[in-house]
Design a protein around this nucleic acid. Sequence first.
DNA 1: CATGAATGAGGATTCATTCAT
DNA 2: GATGAATGAATCCTCATTCAT
Lengths: 191, 191, 191, 191
Amino acid sequence: MQLTKRQNEIVDQALSLTAAGGMQNLTVTNLSAALGISEPALYRHFKNKSEIVKAMINRFDADVPTEQPGKHGFEAIGAFIQARLEQVCANPHLARVMFAEEIFMGESKLYTYLLAMMHKHKAELGGYFAEAQAAGEIQPDIPLDTLYRVVMGPVRLLIKQWGMSEGGFDLRVKGAELLAVLRKMLKANPA
Amino acid sequence: MQLTKRQNEIVDQALSLTAAGGMQNLTVTNLSAALGISEPALYRHFKNKSEIVKAMINRFDADVPTEQPGKHGFEAIGAFIQARLEQVCANPHLARVMFAEEIFMGESKLYTYLLAMMHKHKAELGGYFAEAQAAGEIQPDIPLDTLYRVVMGPVRLLIKQWGMSEGGFDLRVKGAELLAVLRKMLKANPA
Amino acid sequence: MQLTKRQNEIVDQALSLTAAGGMQNLTVTNLSAALGISEPALYRHFKNKSEIVKAMINRFDADVPTEQPGKHGFEAIGAFIQARLEQVCANPHLARVMFAEEIFMGESKLYTYLLAMMHKHKAELGGYFAEAQAAGEIQPDIPLDTLYRVVMGPVRLLIKQWGMSEGGFDLRVKGAELLAVLRKMLKANPA
Amino acid sequence: MQLTKRQNEIVDQALSLTAAGGMQNLTVTNLSAALGISEPALYRHFKNKSEIVKAMINRFDADVPTEQPGKHGFEAIGAFIQARLEQVCANPHLARVMFAEEIFMGESKLYTYLLAMMHKHKAELGGYFAEAQAAGEIQPDIPLDTLYRVVMGPVRLLIKQWGMSEGGFDLRVKGAELLAVLRKMLKANPA
DNA sequence: CATGAATGAGGATTCATTCAT
DNA sequence: GATGAATGAATCCTCATTCAT
């Protein structure tokens, strides 16, 4: 599962091509040309194109574990979101691909793989949401699935807009702002 | 711009195919087969494939005007969201396509078209958001762009999840719930 | 199952190419070139290459039914063999392909299909052999499988040699001669 | 011409692959993988793929000389056939390849080489057939080419069927039976 | 002896589109 | 309106082979 240096270069380029022109732009021809190698050379490094796409998808998860050891409640959620934002800043291509699950609908194997990843995230973050509700950081009467949507929906949209605008605003600033708003909004009303 | 009956059938099928297997699944061959006609016959109704895709995109907007005549502030926003949910319920395929702008990245002409649509929405809803803030329905210190994300992010995610789960939950119920949570959360704290 | 005119032309060419240079010579490129059409054009007539090969194999059987209505015993066998020889004379390419089952080993689906055909032949001719033994035309103590080999082995070799020698001898003459020898040899010794 | 130990292993594997999936299955990639070595490593042992195929073909003849020193007439023929059967029993893969000359039609150089081998056999066995006819073991009025077909046709078919059935019957038993039938049948009728 | 990385040529197949009928 | 037949361009992938290490 550990990728070689060359494999990583290939995945980088694949992300770049996909970010630039969608899945239709990720062809073996384009990819090998972008890498400056011949098409068959690609097959030394990946069994087939699907494996490349799979490696792309794995990238989404790679550097951003949902588990935030030592952190709890909203702090853990905030840390996770922060990490996502940092990841995307480090590799802006991801912003245009990461939350566009539909891109991968063509390859149903990988699509289900992606959905599974999404579910895992939801479940893991769910723990932190419950903690936050128990700790009084979030109003306790919001069902978990809705809560997840209220928090991750805006984060996803933020990242997507940033990707679409090709870095047209400061993601870190707007991210912090969003988090602050969410935290304040979700705070249990002491009423 | 007004589509014939046949053209509408074609767009329906195109949406269905795209919803089922992504843009890669929307081929002239597949489409004509699904319609039970020959490939050349398609070209009687649309100049080329791009025109079909464009017609698909126009569908997103068709029945759901952002402008909510006679309504104001949060009520207008709620009505818009409600209308979106109804639209998607009426044509579930839309749920799998509508907010997956990246699907169309391949056809850059159409992609920009789609982005423009998204911007228009944002601008138009922006007016209602401002109204809501002025009316004290929404905390006044939240910047408009963040506010848009906080509201539309969850709505998009909700619709997307509903599409992905293939109608696995009651969209109207969960939509109403989400709206209630948002309304309550965004309410200016009387503190 | 009934082939169109164009499909028959394609199968003819496919046989010709295979006869000339083996299965490796039967490429979509070669085939379309030989037919003077483009490669994609082939796919209007056959779903894929395998279907073409399958149609080739069906040719083997097409004009030569094992069943010889109204004939019995050795006469039926002789008629069948005669028909095979005529078929091969009419389409000499068949001689180089028909009994080379191994050619098709690559495509295991078709290979089994071919083996099944071979078994069917064996079974059907078996009936005539039994009749011939009962009628005293063939010695009764020869087991059926061996009998089949003794008769069809030489016929196959004859046809193969004729194909390999590219019609270097008169198949009809040599075939008649072989049949005569076999009939005489197999005759129950009145001893 | 004398093969090294490693070369022999390679030829063994080549036969095995060809027997399993036809010539299409004998690729440099498959072969090296089956041997557990890299592709370039193969080229240490053989100049190119053709040389490997040539070595395969030579195997057919290797252990089975047509000349049967000290033997004459039908005895020599029987001994030759016996030796063939033993050879094939010792290396069953041969049964699926040996008499499928058409497999090699692709490589015309090797194909002619193979045909030459077949002719040599025919010529050499021809001597023994003539002896057998002179000695009264075989009816004298059967032309030599037909005689060859009557004897070797069934033997070939027997071996082929054994190979195809993957050793589904006892080759030695059925071979002996066939030989007995042939001997008896061909015996000059004392009529 | 062996390999990792590469390649030009060619494999089958699908694409959107056109044209004569 | 519709179709059957065709096509150039592009798809992913495999082939035998080479070369620097």
